[in-house]
């Protein structure tokens, strides 16, 4: 058997989510080798048949995928419990790893969950996965020193409106419709006192600081302001846009001073860009 064909056949068997018998008989594998001809390709050992030998690889594949997704989605794994392996198998069949690391294997999990009717409460699970994905992304981002509070204070008043703030690369903003943030807070509760999933609009900032991940709850108005900063709006526009919003999305004049003090002390910003075209990093 030529090398290319052998590898296509073996891979088809190894990644098949069913039993080894099903894997050997699957159309993907049988295209390259009929199940009945297995012994022409693989030798038996004194203790194992060819099918039992290739089963070792086939059984390890889902375990690796499970470990990788559990590392990125510990909350989802905990919530799904016994249903998690089945979820992983279904996910890996649709979104197999195509990269040289498993780090990005789970990038499609929130979208995939959104299509799974059998997993409930689906909208809660999607929110939980979105939050965990944001944390995973923040984990791998480039580290950047936080902007010193004095740097913002030193901006001449006349230039403040045209100044843009540059967030740290790890900053992620997540708007949630369910109480996934509250649920994730209880992940390490050994007594499993998790809140019951329920609808609750909330806003979370996820980021990494000094190589540690953390989350900060935001008001809806604060969330909108940070979204505008991330989008690159100058501070004058950020304020105008915020004051023109209605209801919970609208900030008050007092909010800005409080938020910027808090966000700066939390290391949300990495630099400032004064006016058009000029760049300055802290």
């Amino acid at each position: 058997m030529r090398l290319g064909r052998l590898q296509k056949w073996m891979q088809a068997v190894v990644v098949h989510p069913g039993t080894t018998r099903q894997a050997l008989r699957s159309p993907e594998a049988a295209r390259h080798l009929a199940a009945a001809k297995l012994q022409t390709v693989l030798l038996p050992s004194p203790t194992l048949t060819p099918a039992e030998r290739i089963a070792i690889y086939q059984e390890m594949y889902p375990l690796r995928m499970r470990d990788a997704l559990a590392a990125d989605y510990p909350g989802l794994e905990h919530f799904l419990g016994d249903r998690f392996p089945e979820f992983v198998a279904a996910y890996a069949a649709v979104h197999p790893s195509r990269g040289y690391t498993l780090n990005r294997l789970g990038d499609h999990v929130p979208a995939f969950l959104g299509r799974q009717r059998r997993l409930t409460p689906r909208a809660f699970l999607v929110d939980l996965a979105r939050l965990e994905l944001a944390l995973t992304e923040a984990f791998d981002e480039q580290e950047s020193p936080a902007l010193d509070a004095g740097a913002i204070a030193a901006i001449p008043e006349a230039k403040i409106e045209s100044t843009r703030l540059i967030p740290v690369p790890s900053l992620r903003l997540v708007a949630l419709n369910w109480n996934a943030d509250e649920w994730l807070d209880t992940l390490r509760d050994d007594l499993h006192r998790h809140p019951r999933p329920h609808k609750r609009r909330s806003f979370v900032l996820a980021m990494r600081r000094n190589y540690a991940l953390y989350r900060l709850p935001l008001s809806e108005a604060g969330f909108c302001v940070l979204q505008d900063i991330v989008a690159g709006h100058p501070l004058g526009e950020v304020v105008t846009r915020s004051l023109s919003r209605r209801g919970a999305k609208r900030a008050s004049a007092d909010d800005f001073a409080r938020w910027f003090r808090l966000w700066t002390s939390e290391g949300v910003f990495a630099g400032i860009r004064k006016g058009a075209g000029s760049k300055k990093r802290a």
Partner: peptide
């Protein structure tokens, strides 16, 4: 792996 996939084995 082949066909663009990585089995990570």
């Amino acid at each position: 792996g082949v066909l663009g996939r990585n089995t990570h084995d």
